[in-house]
Design a protein around this nucleic acid. Sequence first.
DNA 1: TAATAATTGTTATTGACCATATCAAATATT
DNA 2: AATATTTGATATGGTCAATAACAATTATTA
Lengths: 168, 168
Amino acid sequence: MSVSKTAATEASKTRKEAGEGGSEHALQMGELSELLGYLMKRAQLKVFEDFLRCVAPLQLTPAQFSVLLLVDRNPGRNQTEIANTLGILRPNFVSMLDNLESRDLCMRMRSTNDRRSHILVLTDKGRAVLARAKKLVATKHEARLNELLGPANRTALLAMLTKIAAEF
Amino acid sequence: MSVSKTAATEASKTRKEAGEGGSEHALQMGELSELLGYLMKRAQLKVFEDFLRCVAPLQLTPAQFSVLLLVDRNPGRNQTEIANTLGILRPNFVSMLDNLESRDLCMRMRSTNDRRSHILVLTDKGRAVLARAKKLVATKHEARLNELLGPANRTALLAMLTKIAAEF
DNA sequence: TAATAATTGTTATTGACCATATCAAATATT
DNA sequence: AATATTTGATATGGTCAATAACAATTATTA
């Protein structure tokens, strides 16, 4: 089982092999393959990757999509409220909105009640893009998860992630 | 220096939780609460937060912990091999090792076979810290997941994350 | 009402993280 | 021997996350 250090170093010189990416022997993952954070991070990166692929025609990141969703569902809210709900810090939300506004997906409107705040509204184009994005996400992205896990497991996974996000 | 990690966790107390605070009504999350990427990212952040808390006495990030684990389990491997396995780019792995080496947790040794490469080895202190870290992770971090989900669900979650990380 | 505090959006800045190009030394290939 | 590839390293740019600070506005309170 255990390999001596000299044998291991010897082995390191031996190989070049055809395979995926790494041309060496696979390393022992050890307890890494049971480490929640490691698996979660790896999975999350894959999910974001796939999201970007699926919604690439619309040039929307996951964060941008979530902003459009939330603004659409919550008319009359200001920047701070939207940003807080998404866990985005207010300073960092500014450039994000600048981007969406420059692409005519979203608009800042001065509130009549409180002239400090900007009420956020989707433009017609913003609503149209959001609708197309939702369709792409549902038919390509989330559908992929269904194929991989099955509907029951998918539901279970989302429930567990929700619980972790809320109570961990 | 390098208190940025603790500073970040300290700052989490300042951060307002999404949808909390009795003054404002909670926003409608809409299909956000069913969006895989959103939930995954939120959950992942919580998990990393908790990991940092649990292993704070040892001042190890999840990434550093994974490096120690992998080096320990794979004696005789060089930087490229370890970095590749963890999905870390070689240039970015350099400063990471500089850090671990400066803390006397890890050592670079010139290979006798190939004088270009650095064989990575844990120091005695590195092995000791790793052992303590493993214990903290098991008894505080992963145990927390068990309490939250139960053993069966925890196993199911890890399996699904593994599948997503591998096949998505 | 006047003075003070708090809030909103914003700018500036910093540090962490990810990615690419490039380099010298060493090794592999031709 | 000449050329190509690999390894660790440096430099650099981009994206995020986080903090401090500021002007305009609103809320508080003395």
